[in-house]
Amino acid sequence: MKTKILIASAILVLYSCQNKDKTESKNIIKTIAEDTLSKTVAGTADVSEATPKDDKAVELIRKQLNVLLEKDLPAMTKNDRFFYYEAFDLNNDKKNEYFIGFSNSYFCGSGGCSGFILNNDGSVINRFSVTDFPILVTASVSEKFYDLVFETGGKFHLLKMKNGKYPSNPSVQEVWRGENPKESTSVLDINEKKLEKYSF
């Protein structure tokens, strides 16, 4: 009888030790995850070493930005060299165009931020300035491309494709009358969609 009690006690001790190790392991993992999450939300996480997403679009955009911003690169800090992008088929040709935006002091000022719209092959449709994100894609079309609505200075402006380009300065375009177009799609919603940030 004493032998059975000793064996049962030994098993109970071993089991409780194993559970303690598992609990400590879970707590360490939980602490690391919570720390990373809080730093990400606060914007203090170091994403410079993050593994880039294996994506042909990212590589295409990265390559093009290094060409388009060649003269700017020497003046930029490491923290300035990040972009966000979102793909959208603007002309229903089954190929996505790319909206590229920035959210740092090099590309943004009191009037808003600048960015690019690129074709699927990386060629520039246009460079834009003084805009607040997101950009709205409407259901109306000009020259086979959807019209866009940019917010700048607290007002919405309608941008239509003309001679293969959208206007580069939204603030001087026609003011959109009324509320946001209900049928529009939001792109480059950098704050709400929590878009991934890429280096270039």
Rank of each mutant, 00 (worst) to 15 (best):
K165T: 12
I29M: 13
G109Q: 04
D132E: 04
K95E: 08
C17Q: 09
C108M: 07
A50M: 06
L148R: 04
S38N: 09
T152P: 01
D21F: 12
I100W: 00
M76G: 09
N19Q: 09
F145R: 10
M76W: 02
G101E: 00
A75M: 06
F88V: 10
D89A: 08
A87R: 13
G115M: 03
I7E: 08
K71E: 12
I117M: 02
S9F: 13
D132P: 00
K4P: 00
Y98T: 00
K26I: 11
D55L: 07
L60P: 04
S142W: 11
L6V: 14
R177K: 15
C17K: 08
V187N: 01
S129V: 04
A42W: 02
F88A: 09
K95S: 11
V130W: 10
L159K: 09
F145I: 10
S142D: 13
H157I: 12
K194C: 10
S171H: 03
K193S: 13
S184W: 01
I125H: 01
W176R: 05
N96R: 07
L14F: 15
S199R: 14
I28W: 01
D72L: 08
L118P: 02
Y166W: 10
E183A: 15
E49G: 13
P170I: 08
T77A: 11
I61M: 04
I190M: 07
L60E: 02
G115L: 02
D46K: 12
I29S: 14
F107A: 04
S105M: 06
M76Q: 13
V141S: 04
A57P: 03
L158K: 14
T44Q: 02
A139D: 05
I117T: 02
P134S: 05
L6W: 14
N27T: 09
V141D: 00
V58L: 12
Y98F: 12
L37D: 07
T36M: 05
K30C: 05
G178Q: 08
R81G: 00
F150M: 03
I190S: 05
L69C: 14
S25T: 15
G111T: 03
V137A: 03
D189G: 04
E183S: 15
D21L: 09
G178H: 06
G112M: 07
E174V: 15
E70A: 15
H157Y: 15
N79W: 06
I7Q: 11
I61V: 13
Y15P: 01
F107D: 00
Q18F: 13
S38P: 00
G111V: 00
T3W: 08
N169L: 05
K197C: 03
L195P: 02
D21K: 13
G153C: 06
Q173T: 10
T31L: 05
G101H: 07
G109S: 11
I125N: 01
R62P: 03
D21E: 05
P134T: 06
N126F: 07
V130L: 07
L159V: 11
F150L: 02
A42S: 14
G122D: 05
T31F: 05
L148E: 02
L73E: 11
L69E: 10
L68Q: 08
S38E: 04
F200Q: 01
P167F: 10
S168V: 04
E97K: 03
